[in-house]
Amino acid sequence: MQDNLRMIWNFTKMQGAGNDFVVLDGVRQSIHLTPERARALADRHFGIGADQILLVEDPLDPNADFRYRIFNADGGEVEHCGNGARCFVRFVHDQGLSRRNPLRAEIATGLLVLHESDDGRVSVDMGQTAFTPDRLAFDAAGLETRAAGADTLYGLDLPGEADPVWCSLVAISNPHAVTLVDDTEAFPVGRIGPAIERHRRFAQRVNAGFMQVLDRHHIRLRVFERGAGETLACGTGACAAAVAGIRRGLLDSPVRVDTHGGALHIEWNDQALRMRGPAATVFHGQVDIDTLVASR
């Protein structure tokens, strides 16, 4: 709404396994979210602070209940966010926008089906997975590969690294490169993560995941997210890691994925991919968006 020419937006701060979001209701208020405004909202020093900005809108697809859009902390709009999807359905129910359960959400690449259970946890049917380089805008020309079970690993040469880093490629609407490591806590995610994220072979950048296998149903995971940096959890990253581990012959469904922000539970059977985990409201507020942008 406008107040003496000031644009005041109502917002809700939410988190799913520590992956945090500013959620905006674009159904009952007019929201024009530019990259500059998204960056201002996500700024942890001068804004509200978030890994991503989530925008709930009326759907374009007649088969959807709502449209769900995701903007990374760097202002770029992306295809999917699993932890954000769980917060989305909790937000829609808590705000009284809909009582439907399950909900159908329209994202950039199709429809998601989301269900909130009586214990407050949310499960998301994550859609189809893909593994070919073209689905990740990845240039594999001339690159060395290795077979790993049903998977193919691609060796990425990184600046300053003597040996290539071997990655699984997984597309779950958004792109992921998953690397198996001995110890996620000891691995230099802060150095290797951004080098993979911005590797020249990924035309649209990539989310870089680092997975440690604990047993056939349990992994640890850290993810350096495209446009957000390392986050406490990444829902699509957890799905990508579980799927990559199963394809490599290292894991069996279901898989518990331990992140710094909490546990996520993934099921995959070649056809359906489902994620279950928490979603919580932190606080509500109002922001004068243009004053916030001007103050940075």
Rank of each mutant, 00 (worst) to 15 (best):
D163V: 04
P164Y: 01
W166R: 09
C167Y: 01
S168W: 14
L169D: 12
L169P: 15
V170Q: 03
V170T: 07
V170R: 04
V170G: 05
V170A: 03
A171S: 15
I172K: 02
P175C: 03
H176T: 01
A177D: 07
A177H: 08
A177L: 04
A177M: 06
A177E: 06
V178Q: 06
V178G: 08
V178R: 06
V178Y: 05
V178L: 06
T179L: 03
L180H: 12
L180I: 11
L180P: 02
V181Q: 00
V181C: 00
V181W: 00
V181T: 05
D182C: 03
D182N: 11
D182K: 11
D182V: 05
D183R: 00
D183I: 03
A186T: 13
A186Q: 12
F187Q: 02
P188F: 01
P188W: 01
P188C: 04
P188I: 09
V189A: 11
V189K: 12
V189E: 07
G190I: 11
G190F: 14
G190M: 13
G190D: 15
R191P: 02
R191S: 10
I192P: 07
I192E: 02
P194K: 05
P194H: 10
P194Y: 09
A195F: 00
E197M: 11
R198N: 15
R198H: 15
H199Q: 10
H199K: 09
H199T: 08
H199E: 06
R200M: 09
R201M: 10
R201L: 14
F202D: 03
F202K: 00
F202H: 02
A203F: 00
A203V: 10
Q204A: 15
Q204C: 12
R205V: 09
V206W: 15
V206C: 13
N207P: 12
N207M: 10
A208M: 13
A208P: 11
A208H: 14
A208E: 10
F210N: 05
F210T: 11
F210K: 09
M211S: 04
M211W: 12
Q212G: 03
Q212F: 01
V213C: 05
V213Y: 08
L214E: 05
L214D: 06
L214V: 14
L214Q: 06
L214T: 04
D215G: 02
D215H: 07
R216I: 02
R216P: 01
H217E: 00
H218Q: 07
I219N: 06
I219R: 07
I219A: 05
R220Y: 05
R220V: 06
R220F: 08
V223L: 12
V223H: 11
F224C: 11
E225P: 14
E225G: 14
E225L: 13
E225N: 13
E225C: 13
R226I: 11
R226K: 13
G227P: 10
G227T: 07
G227A: 09
A228W: 12
A228Y: 14
A228H: 10
A228S: 15
G229A: 09
E230Q: 15
E230A: 09
E230P: 14
